[in-house]
Design a protein around this nucleic acid. Structure first.
Lengths: 209, 209
DNA sequence: TCGCAAAGTTAGCGTCTCTTACATATGTTA
DNA sequence: TAACATATGTAAGAGACGCTAACTTTGCGA
């Protein structure tokens, strides 16, 4: 019994839920081979359908990838909110937790992570993706405001949230690119996250140098 | 007179310097259409040669792209060292300058910037690219050590350099992805860079929240 | 039960990467 | 200066891929 037959609903001409299975196959392949080496044909092979089948569900390759991207964003956001629930409102631990989850997702699903950010040029006109990204950043802003004892997000809170985001975003990329090895010294991820949070949320130190 | 003839050495069967012209054509196309929409065929059209010609100079598409990547790294590094020369040794301004140039390059050549980092999986076995990346980070480490009054780079200096790198790296990506607009407030790039430098190079503030 | 819409298939077009075989220019050497 | 080796181009084509058109099967509602 081949892999095709395992996945495809046995004996039926129609497929069950091809759309979902294609998205899942795509996600797997993106992780296995990287977002830029993914082919629709191969996803078809995995799902056990002809190469024309996807086009009943997706306009083109990009739309299929965008579906994977959106699912990834939702997974990532769920991870964030789940993790947040473990810590008391307004604590610095919540900020650290957000960063930890952001990085965990990048390491768990580097392919999808790259899909979400690395190809972001293509997302500009995808309103659903843009909205999702905006919403996620809203969570960070809210946490920063809470942590600073503010009920609303003002310019100062937005700026600090953005600093945190930049930090963790860059750290994620450097981690999945394996650049961290090049530092020459071991790196304690949890300590780094804590340090970032403290440095960004704390008062400005005096300039030196 | 067609574009092909302008570029190709007029009247000659051989091409002058096809290798360099292909790299330049590739760079242009990567900027125009993004690294993932670049095709070798189109670079051939731009250079005015047959689609088989590149394979006399490059093993495959990836090797051509790697040449563009390496050139980009060298340009970026030159920008950094040039900018560094403007500020006194050991000053915080040098740290800020490094970040400014890093971001400037990302904004000037977002396609190549993505090539350098976004596809870094493929660079793992390209020793020249890896060495270049390592060297660039060495510059940052050296500056951090100078700024902290150290003559050698120890774990503390390496860690702070890495923090700075993460920050600026993330900021660059968010900028070229247009995510900055989503903050909802205007962003003073120069002020942000300065703030990052001070927060990372200064003493740790007390934790709050 | 009939007919239609949904969701598959097969066949095939155009483009892309890369290979093979061949043609042409250039420099060196006798 | 003739001839050859080498470098560098072309032409033709195999094989994969993205996508479309036209056909077929299936489930469902009138």
């Amino acid at each position: 019994m081949s892999r095709d037959q395992e996945i495809k609903k046995r004996g039926s001409y129609h497929h069950g839920d091809l759309r979902a299975q294609l998205v899942e196959a795509t996600r797997q392949l993106v992780e296995e081979k990287g977002p830029d080496h993914f082919t629709v044909s191969e996803a078809c092979r995995v799902a056990g359908v002809s190469t024309a089948a996807p086009y009943k569900h997706f306009k083109d390759k990009e739309e299929l990838l965008n579906a994977v991207t959106l699912e990834g964003m939702l997974r990532s956001q769920k991870m964030m909110t789940d993790e947040l629930a473990k810590y008391p409102e307004g604590s610095l631990d919540r900020i650290v937790a957000l960063g930890r989850v952001y990085i965990r997702f990048a390491l768990q699903e580097p392919g999808v992570f790259r899909l979400i950010f690395g190809l972001a040029e293509d997302h500009a006109d995808q309103t659903d993706l843009v909205a999702q990204g905006h919403q996620k950043f809203g969570i960070v802003q809210h946490e920063v405001a809470s942590c600073l004892g503010q009920s609303e997000v003002g310019p100062e809170e937005a700026r600090r949230a953005f600093l945190l985001w930049s930090f963790v975003h860059g750290l994620s990329f450097l981690l999945i690119d394996g650049k961290v090895d090049k530092i020459g010294y071991p790196l304690d991820q949890e300590a780094i996250l804590k340090e970032i949070a403290v440095r960004v949320m704390g008062d400005m130190p005096d300039a030196q140098g």
